[in-house]
Design a protein around this nucleic acid. Sequence first.
RNA 1: UGACUGAUGGUGUAACUGGCAACACGUCUGAUUUUGGUUCAGAAGAGUCUAGGUUCGAGCCCUAGUCGGUCAACCA
Length: 679
Amino acid sequence: MKEATESLNFIEHIVEEDLTAGFPKEKLCFRFPPEPNGYLHIGHAASICLNFGLGEKYGAPVNLRFDDTNPAKEEQEYVDAIKRDIAWLGFKWANECYSSDYFQQLHDWAVQLIHQGKAYVDQQSSEQIAEQKGTPTSPGTNSPYRDRPVAENLDLFERMKKGEFAPGTYLLRAKIDMASPNMHMRDPILYRIIHAHHHRTGDSWCIYPMYDWAHGESDYLEQVSHSFCTLEFKAHRELYDWYLDQIIDPKKLRPKQREFARRNLSFTVMSKRKLLELVQKNVVSGWDDPRMPTISGLRRRGYTPTSIRKFSDVAGISKRDNVTDVSLLEFCLREDLNQSATRVMAVLNPIKVVLQNYPEGQTEILHLENNPEKADTGTHEVPFSRELYIEREDFKEEADSNFFRLTIGQEVRLKSAYIIKAESVIKDAAGNLLEIHCSYDPNSRSGSGTDASQRKVKSTIHWVSVAHAISAEVREYDRLFLDESPDTHESKSYMDFINPNSLKVIKTAFLEPHLGQANPNESYQFQRLGYFTLDPDSKAGQLVFNKTVGLKDNWAKQNAAPTNKQASPAKPVAPAPQEVKSALNEIQYIGKKLTNLSGDKLEDALNDIRKQAEGVSYEELEPLFATASKKVGTRIAVLVALSALLAKGTPKTQAASEFIASCKSDESNTLREEAVKIA
RNA sequence: UGACUGAUGGUGUAACUGGCAACACGUCUGAUUUUGGUUCAGAAGAGUCUAGGUUCGAGCCCUAGUCGGUCAACCA
């Protein structure tokens, strides 16, 4: 039974309001409008999931529109990458559009503006224009060319278009208001001259529309109903609307721009410009470096589309500045991977174990569960022999009782194999550990069903057989920046916070042989270590694995941080004198949680309410009859309490009767049932 | 000294036209576990930026503040 009262985000509220105000549902249309000047990142994913999510929710088309109005920055490579990323996330766009498809229409409308005296050709330098623009606190001044005659504007604009002028010499500007408190309204630029090859229109244009002129009109041409963008465009809305006013046909749909806050992630930066700098300065290996917050980086790292979509869903959408903790993203990732990743064994930091009582030269084939979360995924074979590698961290010669792993004299189980006990160690002259000599219990093989195999030991550790292991490179990643919000410091640049140790390469890790056939698109759980996936750098016989994310590790946590036990002394622990709740409050409190209960628990809660009702008077209860119908729990609680009062002989007032009647026709089954019981 | 915008536990979001702060992550217990994983049960943690006001009742309304963000590219 799914609750119908799923809460909406503010964007969905906007759409819902429009719908209730009479906007036809079949005219809903959304769009995702990236500029093809870089790669998409996790912040874009929020916008993608928002727009395409809306499309799925309302069965409305969502266009993918490339905002390609500046050929100096844009490339086909980015167009391709963006399409790949969106498709990888699992979304389908209704139409693939380009702002450049509308260049002719945009031009014609601009000519129309000139005719109407609403646009003029300026020929000042950018410095002069900037100076005349004023500041946010002081008005601007008019350009000397502002009142150029229409015919002259027409001629000049035509010659701009024909390529008669050099870049920077002429501009087309809208004639609005140089004194507007909104800087964007101070005669914004419509067209500038750029002599550059456009990735789609080639050299057929040398004048290009500015963002504001192109964006709203493109929305209009595509009949996009809701144009959602990030908050920094809020101030552009007035201009967006002004431009629309100039050209709109009232019989057609008028797009509506609304803004939401961009999503920030802790310990990274989220702007194409800054990410580009990391690439250009070789801080990372490229846009798809697994440490990058780009979609392509996350993909290479081993993130799944499901996890990213879940994250966008869970993180939500709002209008305030935010820094979402990466731990939320990682939670979504682990949740998905735990269900899907094949379990394997790999040793990253090996120490050799020799089983003294295991026959030399013998090999056994054991079976390892592919995924304990899914019983039907079967097992795969893993060879076992006398000499094994285990993780160095899994052995200590002696340790306190908190250490569950292998120590001299202490038994552990080798995962899916035997129980072993450490007997002695071999060291070199310098005292470095070389080998651990152990004994194994031949009767303890996993799954053999013997008493010895059922024995409980303090822990189970992973291993690989020395003779059968394959070696591979493993890359482990840490956060790219040492500061939670590296680009929010006034006196420091985000480049000052780069983590010098964000990449750790393990040249030779030992993997169980099953991984020799690892699938590049699959995630593996290296048991007890984390999730890993094959990097594209892999070659036959030279595998490279990326660590996607570690497992939650309580042992490491309690090990690492005995010092910062409780970061802040916080408040005195003395429990505030708990006020005795009134019976009425108690009923309301139980009521609020009622909708989450069922079966016996629900019955118990209802009985609680009946008991509490003894301490409540009818007069206290009556005002609650007006409880909002959405608060079903409270209404049930009130009804049950009322029923208890009536049973006790309280006279039934008209208000009570009306309340009971309204409950009988409520959507909630429980509420209806209780109401019927009274009558 | 401007305009616009925002403020809810450590974090991210909820709370329909005012009805007595919810969900998730994170943290901490305990149980289960052949992964110190998973799962399960539970706990702690905000009284909603401040100060007034309206109201039986305010996170939602009003007034005045405080703090944060955005806006002056021939970028988007």
